[in-house]
Simulated scan of single mutants.
Amino acid sequence: MLRLAVTGAGGFLGWHVRVLLRTLGWPEPVVVTRHDLTDPTAVAAKVTGVDRVLHLAGINRGDPTEVASGNLRIARQLVAGMRAADAPPKAIGYANSVQAGNGTPYGDAKAEVSAILAEAGLPVDDVLLPNLYGEGGRAHYNSVVATFCRVLADGGRPDVHGDRELSLVHATDAAARLVGTATDGSWDATMPALDIGVRELATRLAEMAASYRTGEIPPLTDRHTVRLFNTYRAHCFPAHYPLVLPRRADARGVLVETVKVHGGAGQTFCSTTRPGATRGEHYHLAKVERFVVLRGSAEISLRRVGGTEVVRFQVGGTEPALVDMPTMWVHKLVNTGSDELVTLFWTNELFDPVRPDTWPEPVEASIPRPVAAVG
């Protein structure tokens, strides 16, 4: 268990780092803000005594010259603060890029930042990151995956101007590599990459979106496909839910198709819940989970990990509707009626008690004011 300080904690990768630390049960990281970086004394106070500083902050968009100079300035400010610390950190983790040293202003600056960080006189774990994707990414900024997902969630189609090969790594895997934790079922510190062309990526995501428009689950055949689907679902939340399910009634009664899966594994189970009782109070990093109330009335409430706003859905058995839990959102279900509640649950994988991907946390918790995440 390490004590970390993080620059760029409010960004896309920074949010995944903070969620992973919460999942591991490690201390909340010390957040070094852009404002802190303007004052070496403020930086020194924050990094004193920490085990590792993760340098995630950077400038990715804008005038190439300004992007380059801004990244160099941030690195020099961080080094000045670390040098002034009474008890300097033991090491530095640097979120570098595979573009480092490629002859562009951005790439050459990323390489130079590595040299600047080494001037602190501490071991530097220089992690060359490819294109990152995942939940919380901002369209037209963090990745082409986020852009395509946003367009599809809004009912459009991705516009592919040219095709090229991409190497994609999920942001939680990158976070695990930077944090230095061992690989687990929900994250992989070896950062396995998905090598895919832009056009094929657009097609794959469009097929997912077409299936999911009516609540059908597309084929989830491998690890990256599940994470791409979770990324797409993140852009559907909360506007896409609850999704009312078709009902077929005849003299015998009513039939509702709650889950239609196009291939892949899964597990379905039902529960009864007494009036006023609660189920859930946890989050998942990768698991797809669906709630459908079949009898009674309930409130489903969700909160993004590290956030404070709670999203609530009122659902009932008179008009069955699905609500799929977005990954990295704490969620619970409460029976709000006077009768027993009957709920159907579905997950995309069989429950594994050794690696359950179920991390306890209350939805309506008293938590410190979070750093706002981008996206």
Rank of each mutant, 00 (worst) to 15 (best):
A109K: 01
V124M: 11
N96G: 12
A75T: 03
V98W: 09
R83F: 11
N71G: 06
N96K: 07
I92S: 02
A80N: 14
G101Y: 03
A111L: 15
P123L: 14
L78M: 09
L117W: 01
E119P: 05
E112I: 10
G103E: 12
S114N: 14
A95F: 04
E119N: 08
E66V: 13
V124A: 06
P105S: 09
Q99W: 14
L117P: 00
G93E: 05
A100W: 03
A75N: 01
V79H: 00
G107T: 01
D108F: 07
N102A: 14
A85H: 01
Q77I: 10
S114I: 11
A75R: 00
Y106H: 05
Q77V: 10
Q77G: 08
P105M: 13
D108S: 08
R83K: 15
A109F: 01
G101P: 03
N71C: 12
Q77A: 13
Y106E: 08
I116N: 01
A80T: 08
I116L: 15
T104V: 12
A111E: 14
V67A: 08
G107D: 07
S97E: 07
A84I: 07
L122G: 01
S97N: 06
A111Q: 13
P88G: 05
Y106I: 09
L122W: 03
L78N: 01
E119M: 12
P105Q: 08
Y94Q: 06
A91F: 08
A100M: 12
R83E: 14
G81L: 10
G70E: 07
R73G: 10
Q77H: 12
G93I: 05
R76D: 12
P105G: 06
A75E: 03
V113Q: 04
K110A: 08
Y94R: 04
G121T: 04
A91L: 12
P88F: 07
E119I: 09
A68S: 07
